[in-house]
Amino acid sequence: MTQATRDLIARYYAAFNAGDAKAMLDCVSSDIEHRVNEGGVRRGKVLFGEFCSHMGVSYREELKDIVIFSNEDGSRAAAEFVVHGTYLKTDPGLPEAKGQGYILPAGGFFDVKDGRITRVTTFYNLNDWIRQVSE
C-alpha cells in the first residue's frame, strides 16, 4: 500500500509538471478537499479543476527535487520539493505579474483512500514569494 501511495503522488506531480490538469484530476477523488496555502478550502473535483486551470494561466511552474513520504498503511503522504516558476498573469491581491521568476521550497500533504487523493494541503512561504516577484 505504501508504494502504491508514493506512486500515486508521483503521478500527481508528474502531471503537474506536464501541465496536464486532466491527469491531475484523475489522481483525486470526486470529493477532494484542497486546502490552499494561507487560503480557504476547496471541496470537490469541479472546484479543484477550476483552480488547476487558473494556475495554468497565471503561473508556469516546475517542481524539482521531489521527495515523497508515506505512512505504513499508505493513507497519508507528504512531499517536499522546490518550485521553479514564472509569474505570468497578475493574481488579484498579489503583485503585478511581469514574467518574474521565483524559486521556493514547498510541500504537499495528502490523505489517500481507495487509490485516490482525498485531501491535498499545500504549503510555501507566501512572503518569500512576494519578495521574489517584487524585486
Results as ranks from 00 to 15, higher is better:
H54E: 13
S70G: 09
Q3L: 11
E50F: 03
D31R: 08
L94F: 15
T90K: 01
G85D: 01
S53M: 05
L63I: 02
N127I: 01
I130H: 05
Q132A: 05
A77G: 15
G40I: 06
Q3H: 09
P95N: 08
P105I: 06
G108V: 09
K89A: 03
V46H: 14
R116W: 00
R76I: 07
W129G: 02
S134R: 11
V41H: 13
S30I: 01
T122H: 12
C27Y: 02
I9V: 14
N17M: 01
G85M: 03
A106P: 02
G107C: 09
G99H: 11
A23T: 00
E96D: 14
G101N: 14
P92Q: 08
R35A: 10
A10W: 00
F16W: 13
D65K: 06
S75K: 11
A23Q: 08
L126N: 12
E135D: 08
E33P: 04
G101P: 02
G115I: 11
L47P: 01
A97W: 06
P105E: 14
K98N: 14
E61R: 10
Y87R: 10
D73G: 05
D111P: 05
F69S: 12
L63F: 09
R60D: 11
S53W: 00
D111V: 02
A4I: 00
D111E: 15
C52D: 05
F123W: 14
A10M: 05
Q132Y: 10
Y59W: 04
Y124S: 05
T118Y: 11
S30A: 14
I9F: 00
S30Y: 04
A21D: 14
G74I: 02
G74M: 03
R119T: 14
V83E: 12
D73M: 04
N127L: 10
G19F: 00
F123T: 14
F51S: 06
V41K: 15
K113P: 08
G40L: 03
G74S: 10
A4C: 05
F51Y: 13
C27L: 01
Y87I: 06
L126Q: 12
